[in-house]
Amino acid sequence: MMNAPTDLSAHASGGVKRLDHALTLERIALSRGGHPLFAGISLSIVAGDIVWIGGDNGIGKSSLLRLMTGLSRADSGGICWRIAGADCPPHDLICYQGHQDAFKPNLTAVESLEFWAKILECTASIDALLKTVGLSVRANVPCGQLSAGQKRRLSLARLMLSQKPVWIMDEPTAAMDSEGVNLIHELIGGHVSRGGSAIIASHQAPRMNGLRTRQLILKATS
């Protein structure tokens, strides 16, 4: 099932804060258990940017994303989150789709999104979001009975619900069928074209038709 691109863009970015925003990393270094993961990473992400982070397994892609979310701290270097020229806390700027879906097996898809809508103080139409991610027919199915790909779609709906300008996505296409992969790319495209930005960590570069994608390939430190 595929939704019209107009629907996608409307739901993907309709509520995004259109203020200028920037996420800046300066000479970031991180180690795990005494082993350096990466060092000297500097990066600036502004409205309209798509950044793809690639690299081998265990190279630190997910760790770098978590630094960008503010969930963890770097060993050295600085990260700055800014909206409209002023520093802001990370949660004002970013929304994160991690490896874990954060959905409860005993709550249905619609109940899960309703919960997150209340937490995010968002009044977006849950039905429309579920339709956008192709889960209308599974709306009242407990999350425990959804497939991995369907849970991924549901977390995509939460991403849209958040209405934050920067989407940080860790392996967004994992467990997704080809239709789901296209859906993700269309949603990211819609989000970015309306003033948002996206940072995507995956093994394969996203196919963003007509949108410039910057690449950051992590390599093992010697």
Binding site: T69, G70, L71, P89, P90, H91, D92, I94, C95, Y96, G98, H99, Q100, D101, A102, F103, K104, W116, I119, L120, R158, S162
Partner: peptide
Amino acid sequence: SDDLNDGTLEQLVLTGL
């Protein structure tokens, strides 16, 4: 434990709660 293991806690923190 459940909220930590399934990623709910980090998502809650990321909402600004």
